[in-house]
Design a protein around this nucleic acid. Sequence first.
RNA 1: GCGCCCGUAGCUCAGUAGGAUAGAGCGACGGUUUCCUAAACCGUAGGUCGCAGGUUCGAAUCCUGCCGGGCGCACCA
Length: 611
Amino acid sequence: MSAPRDHNSRDMNQSIANLLFERIASAAAAALGTNATIDRAWLKPTNDPKFGDYQFNGALPLAKQLGEKPRDLAQKVADAFKVDDLCESPEIAGPGFLNFRLRPEFLATYLQEIPPVDPSATYDRLGIAPVAQPDKVVVDMSSPNLAKEMHVGHLRSTVIGESVARILEFAGHDVERVNHVGDWGTQFGMLLAHLRSTQPEALKDLDHLQIANLENFYREAKKHFDEDPAFADEARRTVVQLQGGDPNTLCIWKAFCDESLRHCHAVYEALGITGLTDRGESFYNDQLADVVDELTKLGLVQKSEGADCIFPEGFKTRDGDPLPLLIRKSDGGYLYASTDLAAARYRIRECGATRVIYVVGVPQKQHFEMFFAVLRMAGWAGDGVRLEHLAFGSMLDASGMPFKTREGGTVKLKDLLAEAVERARAVVDADSDDVESARAQFSEEEKAKIAETVGISAVKYADLAHNLATDYRFSWEHMLAMEGNTAPYMLYAYARIRSIARNAGIDYGDLPAGAPLTLEHPAEIALAKALARFPEIIQQVANDLKPNLLTEYLYDLSRHFSRFYDRKQGVRVIDAEPESLRISRLRLCDLTARAIRTGLYLLGIKTLERM
RNA sequence: GCGCCCGUAGCUCAGUAGGAUAGAGCGACGGUUUCCUAAACCGUAGGUCGCAGGUUCGAAUCCUGCCGGGCGCACCA
């Protein structure tokens, strides 16, 4: 899936900020000698354009390091600085900040070098090359329990996992998305027994097993189990049969899991989730005993209250005693830690994973800390393997309470997405009655497609636009708003730019590839600067795995574009003269559209040409 | 009890490897609009960054304590 490296593309690290930092580092080395240690973190974008575009804050810490005055140091670095092609002479401000202002000529060259869209590629890389040494990354995401229907609790893991996977793929890594579904456990005994007792005819044709409503099926089975002792016994016997590998029971179990997975994949399809590998807990069943054995041979396992335990350092129980990670129950059964360990071992040893990312809610933080500690103790995860718990907060309703139905039940993901599309459709229809509205001419099919894209995107974008770690409030009103940092705004911003080409009577793809860009008007320069930050943002998002930095950037870029195109603040585009200027400005439109489209792609969001 | 996370404008949220006067959006008020679909643009008002100390040339950001909210703390996942 990784795009071919072409001679035109830049390395991921060749953002303007990195370019600038290299110059600063060599200037500092020349001016201050090699004993001065320079930190990349000292170079940042300014928070106010009047200080230029980037600021280097290193003079102050260096002053302490070297025992000199900060402003003198800043002056020395500035004097040694060779930047004529890149930016204006640096200015020294305040106590010793070095301010850099990019030159429009440099920006123009930088943007001109972005190659045209490769029509054969899955997505547009805007000239950014993949990393030279890819990681083998496993993203553990979504992972619903097959006994039940997917609910809102799985939304964030699925949406965030997909985005993170795409971002890492874009960076050039080899990414596998793994759906670690719950397809094993005692509740399956109950479900299979219920299936046997209530739908014997369904068992005759397991390939076509259908359960219309898994949630109801589970509830009925539970009720059956609670109210009928004979059935409860039968359910327990079924668990034994299942665990004992009884062929008939296994067949039914398999058919049940397949049917449940079909429900899941309907949701994944609606969400635009791509390339997800279903590899459930049961996959590791025959490895569990060996996992415990191997850990035992390593001398890590202790018997405690009859259970097999590992005690990583630094964890305590409620009573202050050492807290174990339980890997086998006193009755010989296994737990989710056992399966997690087996899965991690498999991913590292068999799949060659060098990085494993678990997209799981923040309440499981401690579990992952302990689990990772054990993987390190066992040596299964060595220094060459990164383990990350990408923890996310809960979805809350408008009043800040856990997201539930009015009746207090869990909200099915299917229903939530259907509602999103329905609400988006209402917005589309609201304007369609107006004969003046362009939307009035849209076909029914197109309106349906718009509603679907807008609705689903709204849900995903709202999720990704928030800091992962904190809880966030789910609000239809906010996510579907056409103003502010929302999917509808971004999709519309994109559609508008595409529409400019139509009105100009051109196709962006036909613009001459290397044609020079003219950057003179402040709005033009500001837009160019925003565009030029794209590689920097991608790099940062790939490092930090923070999609909200990307949404923020895209929104900022769109606003710069609005100013650029604004009647009063901006410049003429379609009727700009001479022709070279018109082309230059249309190319800026195109680059903006491409950056938005790629950015949204990395969030797992499709664009629309009209809406 | 121990541990972790959170507390930023009326509302929803950015911003934490320390950096200049803490930013957006929504809502409110005022203005603009011969190129895209008025779903735009410009401006005004709005803040003891929970509180109190500390470290530092410099703290929303790091440390300590407190207040308030959430979550977790061995045979469920």
